[in-house]
Amino acid sequence: MKKILLLCLGYFSLYARVISGSVPLASQDMAPRNGGDLLVSSELVQNILNYQQWGELFTYLQVHWFRVLFFGITIGVLVVFLLHYLVIGPKKFSHEGKGIFVYSIFKRIVHWTAALAFVLIVPTGFMMIFGKELGGGDLVLTARYIHSVGTVLFIVSFIPMFLMWFVPMLPTFDDIKWFLMLGGYLTKKKVVVPAGQFNAGQKMWFWVALLGGFVMIFTGGMMYFQDLHLAVLDRFNLAQIDIIRISAIAHNFLGMAVTALFITHMYMSLFAIKGSLDSMLDGHKSEDEVKYMHSSFYKKLKKEGKI
């Protein structure tokens, strides 16, 4: 009896509050503006009519170009480096002495975090592109999930890497000279290469990996979440589905650039210059190597009396 009384009292007080207007009743203009699924709306039919704009382009590229280009670029880059290794061969530098301390422990941790991210992201990306050949199913589905996990690692390393290398990665006049002689990689002779702490090739990789990486995170995020509504994008007046289509196109083309430079980076550090990997392991770069491959940086250190 007591319970029923309390319940009545409760209902009465609610009723009173509704009457007095303190409890809002749902009305049409209170419906959330972007409630529910963005992909399911009256936009849907308009998008059928606008299909030719981006839908057809995406279909065309995915059917005819993406797989061919990824395959061609990857094989092309690998063949070029194999020929380089066989014809010109790796560069060898004296590793006597303590070497020059170039990478602090912090920089090495950030680098290897990003490295792990790339090792997770790039091969799993390839597994998705060539999913047909792998038969699809759980294997490629797992690859897709690992692709996302790798992205989280990349996001973690993104800001510290940007901050710690932003200044030395800015372009200088040395870079033009470096490009004219292709970094001295086309000759067997030990030549003095114009470069600061980082050469033009490393800078190219840095900017593609970070600026490109930012676009990759963004476009990947749009594809991952599908219904993510970003007010910034409203000004482009694009339907959500078209934003995802453009994201997919950008993601694929940038993926090609990242893949090519990722292979290049691995070849340079592991094969092209013997022992250059040490600098990322113990932080010290051989003095001989710095003298030739980063001549401007060497001169600067000498001037400052650090060597």
Binding site: F58, G136, G137, R144, Q226, R245, A248
Partner: peptide, 11 residues
């Protein structure tokens, strides 16, 4: 076989 990549939705 499907991996849920979403390409079919874009196309």
């Amino acid at each position: 076989t499907c991996i849920g990549c979403g390409y079919c939705l874009y196309a």
